[in-house]
């Protein structure tokens, strides 16, 4: 092979590599498979432990779409939890935690509730469906099923749940932060229930929607008004 030929091959390889790299970087910012996302996340010191578990348990090809809108400057990925069955079995979920503070979340005994309510994290959960086709026919079915349940049990609920249609047309439901209740219920000998103590239990706001293209459910929880949660949800393209 001539020098010119070798040069051309090397040049082609370099250009091809650059193109591939560009595509990968671009893909990371848009949408990617779980495996790809986890590779990127492996460089994040906040998520490596959870990563080790999640990497062993990746089911069928799942896309993780990340929000491009967060409520303030400085919010970054600061923790991940993943619960996935091995061997491509369906089910499970992955949660991404964003916050605007230094350091990693979820490594100091901070549970989900405290992360959101005390440390003002934004949690984005992707529910892995039980089949690649998803657990719901469409967003209407997803939202209306739950909303019917909510209406039937409204007296029990403290959250004021509303149906939501996102700007991209996806359907879901959500509520503002609310004051839930921690109850201590005594079962009396005659079988009746008696609430012996109640205490307020502040809860985050939430929006859930069915991503019809990916066939997964997204949940966004934060101590923020529903209108703000809707903006975050709408940025999950």
């Amino acid at each position: 092979m001539s020098m010119n030929g070798t040069f051309i091959i090397i040049a082609v390889l370099i250009v091809t590599g650059a193109i591939v790299l560009t595509l990968i970087v671009a893909n990371i910012k848009a949408t990617q498979t779980m495996d790809e996302e986890l590779k990127v996340l492996s460089e994040n010191p906040c998520v490596q432990n959870a990563l080790a578990i999640a990497q062993k348990n990746i089911p069928f090809d799942i896309k993780i779409r990340v929000p491009t809108y967060l409520p303030a400057e400085g919010y970054r990925l600061a923790g991940i939890t993943g619960v996935l069955e091995p061997g491509g079995s369906p089910g499970g979920w992955v949660s991404l935690y964003y916050w605007d503070k230094e350091g990693c979340l979820l490594t100091s005994g901070i549970n989900e509730h405290d992360a959101i309510m005390q440390y003002k994290a934004v949690k984005v959960t992707i529910l892995i469906p039980h089949s690649p086709d998803g657990d719901y026919k469409n967003g209407d079915e997803f939202a209306s099923n739950y909303y019917s349940y909510y209406l039937e049990n409204k007296e029990e609920f403290k959250a004021d749940v509303r149906l939501v249609t996102l700007s991209n047309g996806y359907k879901g439901y959500g509520n503002d932060p609310f004051i839930g209740i921690g109850k201590w219920i005594k079962i009396k000998n005659d079988g009746d229930e008696e609430v012996v103590q109640e205490e307020p239990y502040p809860e985050p706001g939430e929006i859930k929607f069915f991503h019809e293209k990916d066939r997964v459910v997204y949940i966004v929880r934060a101590d923020m008004p529903l209108v703000e949660l809707i903006k975050i949800a709408e940025s999950i393209k």
Partner: peptide, 13 residues
Amino acid sequence: QYGVGHSHIFAED
């Protein structure tokens, strides 16, 4: 249960 709260339930005896 999200949307409702949490309960500890016990019996008298």
